[in-house]
C-alpha cells in the first residue's frame, strides 16, 4: 500500500508529526535542564532555545511542504473522494504547521529552565 496523496493516512500524519515533535520538545527541554541547564541570566538567547527553535523551523518547513504537495495533487485525483481527502489532509498539514509554530513561540521570550 503506497501512501498516495489522497490516502487517508494523510489525515492524521501531520498531527502525528506535531505530537512527536511536541514530546521531543518537552522531553528534550526537561532532559537538557536536568543535565546542563544554561545560565538563567542569558534569558531566552542561549544554545538550548536556539536548538529548540531550529528544530521547530525544520518541522514547520516539512509540514508546509507536505501541505503544498497535497494541495497541488488533490485536483489530480480520479474521484471526488480522493480530492476531498486530499484537500482536507492539506488543511490538516497546515493546521499542524500552525500549531507547531504557535506552541514554540515562547521559546523566543522565556529562559528555559526556571
Amino acid at each position: 500500500m503506497r501512501w498516495r496523496p489522497h490516502h487517508p493516512v494523510h489525515l492524521i500524519l501531520g498531527l502525528c508529526v506535531w505530537s512527536i515533535w511536541f514530546v521531543v520538545l518537552y522531553g528534550g527541554l526537561s532532559v537538557a535542564c536536568q543535565l546542563t541547564p544554561p545560565e538563567p541570566q542569558q534569558g531566552p538567547f542561549n544554545w538550548l532555545n536556539v536548538l529548540l527553535w531550529l528544530s521547530t523551523l525544520v518541522v514547520v518547513g516539512l509540514l508546509l511542504w507536505a501541505a503544498r504537495v497535497l494541495w497541488r495533487a488533490a485536483p489530480r485525483a480520479e474521484q471526488p473522494l480522493g480530492r476531498h481527502i486530499g484537500v482536507t489532509s492539506a488543511g490538516l498539514y497546515l493546521v499542524s504547521a500552525f500549531s507547531t509554530l504557535a506552541v514554540a513561540m515562547p521559546v523566543l521570550f522565556l529562559p528555559p529552565c526556571i
Partner: peptide, 24 residues
C-alpha cells in the same frame, strides 16, 4: 483529537515545572 493530548500538564501548572515548558 490530537491537540487535546498536548494539554495534560495544564493541570499541573503549580507543581514547579519550568516556565518555558508551562508556556508550551
Amino acid at each position: 483529537g490530537f491537540i487535546s493530548f498536548g494539554l495534560w500538564v495544564h493541570h499541573m501548572f503549580t507543581v514547579g515545572i519550568p516556565q518555558l515548558a508551562q508556556a508550551f
